[in-house]
């Protein structure tokens, strides 16, 4: 099998509340002959806060990591949709020479290359190398609602990811492992984002709408590619059910966990036990474990 290495930026949440995303991503990539090389001593990208408080900071933080990643001859891989968005915005701003010079002075190290395609999301990495995904166990009968959220797809001229209203890239991966994907209209609607501390009422309302719509569309679980979405839909689900007196019970997987199951990685390896909504009964019912 071919071997390749990509610089990898996990981001803060993948080291804490979204550990299972980081672990499953590394395992799946390893199976594909891809090594994710974590950037040395990486710093937070500024997330949802920096760009509204200090614009230069929101460009400088990702730019510093872009410089570190340049020594690899491969694009930087991000897994969190929020990090992905911040890196893409920074790369977009850095197309401007004056901005590049200013940021170079601010971060005080290295030349900044001008390459806005130098950042990709983990889904794109898997999609680009899908021939290396060896499916050992088909996930037949699982009905998945692929949820993309806002930040991967919008704005297209910056993220260059997929269609803004009807993306397909995750659906294709899920179909590759022979699970079914449901057709639903809320793929790119917002889950409430990073308002879980400041305005939990908004998160509860918007996430309920997503879970409800996924269920209406016939899904028995969701697949996501972002730790913020996962937190809102999974950790909050009990609270949402109580609030709306609605029985939802939809497990929320990271897409890497579903691909991993199809590679015959065990639920334990993929840390399926970290979720608030226990996915094991569903997987048992479908005869997948």
């Amino acid at each position: 099998m071919k071997q390749s290495a990509y610089p990898y930026y996990p981001g803060c949440t993948l080291k804490a509340s979204a550990k299972e995303y980081d672990i499953s991503a590394r395992l799946v990539c390893a199976q594909m002959g891809i090594k994710l090389e974590e950037l040395d001593d990486w710093v937070c990208c500024g997330a949802a806060s920096a760009h509204g408080i200090d614009r230069l900071l929101s460009i400088a933080l990702p730019a510093r990591e872009l410089v570190t990643a340049q020594k690899f001859k491969a694009p930087l891989v991000t897994a969190c949709a929020l990090c992905f968005s911040r890196f893409k915005f920074a790369a977009y701003e850095l197309r401007n020479e004056a901005m590049r010079n200013l940021i170079k002075y601010i971060i005080g190290e290295g030349e900044i290359q001008q390459n806005s395609d130098g950042v990709i999301h983990l889904i794109q990495l898997l999609d680009n190398n899908k021939d290396d995904i060896r499916v050992k166990k088909l996930l037949n009968g699982l009905r998945v609602a692929c949820y993309y959220g806002c930040l991967l797809v919008r704005p297209k001229e910056v993220t260059n990811f997929d269609d803004e209203e009807e993306p397909q890239i995750m659906d294709k991966l899920i179909k590759l492992v022979e699970a079914e994907t449901v057709d639903w209209k809320f793929k790119t609607e917002c889950c409430g984002g990073s308002h879980m501390l400041t305005r939990p009422d908004i998160v509860i309302k918007l996430s309920h709408r997503l879970l409800y719509q996924a269920k209406q569309a016939g899904a028995d679980c969701l697949a996501v590619a972002c730790p913020v979405c996962h937190y809102n839909l999974d950790s909050n689900q009990k609270k949402i059910e109580a609030n709306y007196k609605d029985n939802i019970g939809l497990p929320v997987f990271y897409f890497t966990q579903l691909v991993g199951l199809a590679m015959e990685l065990s639920p334990k390896q993929l840390l399926l036990n970290k979720h608030f909504v226990n996915p094991m009964p569903l997987l048992q019912r479908k005869g997948l474990i």
Partner: peptide, 22 residues
């Protein structure tokens, strides 16, 4: 008030540790 508190804390957290301590 709450929004500014949250985002300012986030930035000072970042300044202090380099990563976010959830």
């Amino acid at each position: 008030k709450d929004f500014k508190l949250f985002h300012n804390l986030f930035i000072s957290n970042l300044n202090r540790f380099g990563r976010i301590y959830e």
